[in-house]
Amino acid sequence: MEATTDIVENESVWGGGNKPLNASYGKMMMWFFIVSDALTFSGFLVAYGFSRFKNIDSWPIADEVFYHFPFLHGIDAPMYYVALMTFILIFSSVTMVLAVDAGHKMQKTKVAIYMLLTIIGGAVFVGSQAWEWKNFIQGEYGAVETKGGQILQFVTADAGERVSLESFASTLPTDRAQHTGDEGLWFVSESSLPTYSVAEIQEGFLANPDLLIKTEMIDATTGHKIVLDRAASEEKIAQAVYVVEGANLVRNEYGNRLFADFFFFITGFHGFHVFSGVVINCIIFFNVLLGTYDRRGHYEMVEKVGLYWHFVDLVWVFVFTFFYLV
């Protein structure tokens, strides 16, 4: 049985310099910070689970939201991109462990090389996340929202494929212009107007008999979103009040409003952790180059930032599961 403390004979236990649990002060505090941060993240993820269970029959399906892959425009590639991102982050974790291992052996050059690789991996991951956000914010097809806050998407009747608003919206003469502070009330601001008005979408939809409406609701037996028939679609389109293109913190074209909020908040908070991890890794990297830890006689700082970096990886494993897989 391993004891909690070492029994030291003929030495002053109260004189300081002891290492309870055989871990140094800094390492132990890094671990306890990680515990508290892990609880923060679990709070966020459980809140996401709460909203999802509350809207269990209408939550957006991840494969229908995240299907982009660089240089494969228009090709349906769900999950491959996040799988790649996951692999990049796990790989940067590996180079971090290798840096810590080289640090134990006091190999300065090796530590520096592995730290540099870790920083590059982290930077690539943050860049990938930015690209993911860009696609999410921009959207591709667009949708309309009803007064009750339900998102209606448009699909073709024969293949059930998503149709973009621009492919069927008709053009109506309109006097509606973007409100700007210098041409209207200076104290009132307006977010940018959608490309099409609700009336244009409604008229275009009625003029295209081969279009149907895809609702938010999930068919419990097939697991797919319910597509209305033509008569019900024509009835539903009359209830549209907003045109939604892409996503912001108020509404998004993918479905439930909370979905985009949680996406931005949780992946954003994680991305912020990755970013700060990269910054801290850079500081340690330059300290390694300057020989600070060589003079100090040990590379424990590398081990401590390593713990933080692995924690970021650990959180991503859970974010990946709950946003993209489940």
Partner: peptide, 13 residues
């Protein structure tokens, strides 16, 4: 256990 080397730490820690 392996990357954050909890495997190598004290059980109580």
């Amino acid at each position: 256990w392996d990357f954050m080397h909890l495997r190598d730490e004290r059980r109580s820690f």
